[in-house]
Structures are given as structure tokens and as C-alpha cells.
Amino acid sequence: MATDIQIDPRGPRFGAAWTLLLAVLAMVIGTNSVGLVLAFALAALFLPGAIVGPQATVQSAVFKKWVRPRLAPPAETESFRPPRFAQQVGLFFATLAIVFLALNLAVGFYIAIGFILVASFLNAVFDFCLGCEVYLLVTRATRRA
């Protein structure tokens, strides 16, 4: 496996707070053009984190520039892999939301955004990574060996 990158675990948490804000707005504003823009914004925010890792997101740039200098050094660092996987799950649901909206399926849109809402809420407020918890279940269900 490629080399590990250790990151400040408070970075992804800060990023999740922004995701949470956008997800709440998307849920409340609903299935119209503004909702579509919000779903695209969510997908765009997830994209760099899903491909490169949480250290590449827009939120992490804000965190590094303005938030982290005001904080004490982190008590511990964590691997970039769990939050990167979480960003991939997020990107999946954001894409799903866009597809549902394009197909005019409002319920699907709300369910997809709802998953992002719950996951980002748990991450931002309780520092609990829902995507990481389901990783083994997904692996068990999809791989044979």
C-alpha cells in the first residue's frame, strides 16, 4: 500500500461542519434549482477529498490557513485513509442526489442528502465516522475471498 499521510483529525471534523451546513440547506430548500446547485456544491467539495484525500479539500485549506494556527497542536494525528473513504461515500451520495433530481425523483434526493446530513452531523458533532464503520460491512458484502 502507498505511503501513509498523517493528518490533524480536527481538519476533517471542521470540514464536516461545512458539509453539514450545506446538507441542511439542501434539505430545507428542497428540489429546485437552488437545491441542485447545493448538491453540485456538495459533490464538488467531496471530489478532491475522495480522490486525493481529506488534506486536499477546500475546507482543509481554510482549516490550515485560519483555524489551525489558533489551535494547540493536535494530541494525536490520524491516517488520511479513513476520512478519504468517508469522502468517497459522501461523493457517492451527492452524485446520487444529483441523479435523482435529474430524474425528478424528489424522495430519492431527500434520502441521498439525508445520508450526507446524518453522516456529517455525527462527524462534526460527535467525531464519529459513520463511513468508516460501514467499510468492513461493505467489504464483506462485496468481496468473495
Partner: peptide, 19 residues
């Protein structure tokens, strides 16, 4: 819009309970 805002609050409340 108000209904959806209430649903958001309910979903977040349930998520907190679940956590």
C-alpha cells in the same frame, strides 16, 4: 419549507440518540 426544517431537526435528533 417549515415541514422540511422540522424533519431535518427530527432526523438529527434521531441520529444523536442512535449515536
Amino acid at each position: 419549507m417549515l415541514v422540511r426544517a422540522l424533519i431535518v431537526l427530527a432526523v438529527l435528533g434521531l441520529a444523536a440518540l442512535g449515536w
